[in-house]
Simulated scan of single mutants.
Amino acid sequence: MDSYTAAKRDFATRSGLIPHVVLFTAEQLTEVYRSIHETLQNYSITSQRQEHLSSAAEQIERIVSDLEALAEPSNQKELEFAAIEPPREGGMQLS
């Protein structure tokens, strides 16, 4: 996000035009982005759902300028967690 866009968003939030609770943080968007890619890589989904998720991922890429830098520590933590946590049975299935 360029500085002008960030300034407009900051003004709109601080002035109350956009409630702060409806905005996602960069960290939240990073986790959503990671989850989208995990879903696209690991699950069979309809082409319509795939289009929606791909579009959302592209939008997040445009919004979060340091997406890769934010995603790397999250990926590392997940790998560390997976190394110690035994796999669970009965995981969530998407239809």
Rank of each mutant, 00 (worst) to 15 (best):
E51P: 06
L53E: 00
A57F: 05
I36S: 02
Q59V: 01
R49K: 12
Q50R: 15
R88Y: 13
Q93K: 15
A69P: 00
S35L: 03
A71Y: 08
V64E: 05
L53F: 01
I60R: 05
T25L: 02
P87R: 06
R88Q: 15
T25Y: 00
F24I: 01
A69V: 01
E80W: 08
G91P: 01
S65R: 12
V64S: 08
A57Y: 03
T30V: 03
S55L: 11
L23H: 09
T30R: 14
H37N: 13
P73W: 01
S47V: 15
L29S: 09
Q93R: 14
A71V: 02
H37F: 07
E61L: 05
K77S: 07
G90A: 01
E61R: 09
I63G: 00
E78K: 15
A83K: 14
E38F: 10
T39L: 13
R62M: 06
E68H: 06
E85I: 08
V22W: 04
E31S: 02
N75W: 09
L70E: 00
S44D: 13
S74Y: 03
Q76A: 09
I63Y: 10
A82V: 11
I63A: 04
A83P: 00
V32L: 13
E51Q: 12
E31Q: 07
I36A: 07
A82I: 12
L40R: 12
I60N: 07
Y43V: 14
L40N: 11
Q28V: 00
I84P: 01
V64C: 12
R34D: 10
S54K: 07
E61A: 13
L79H: 09
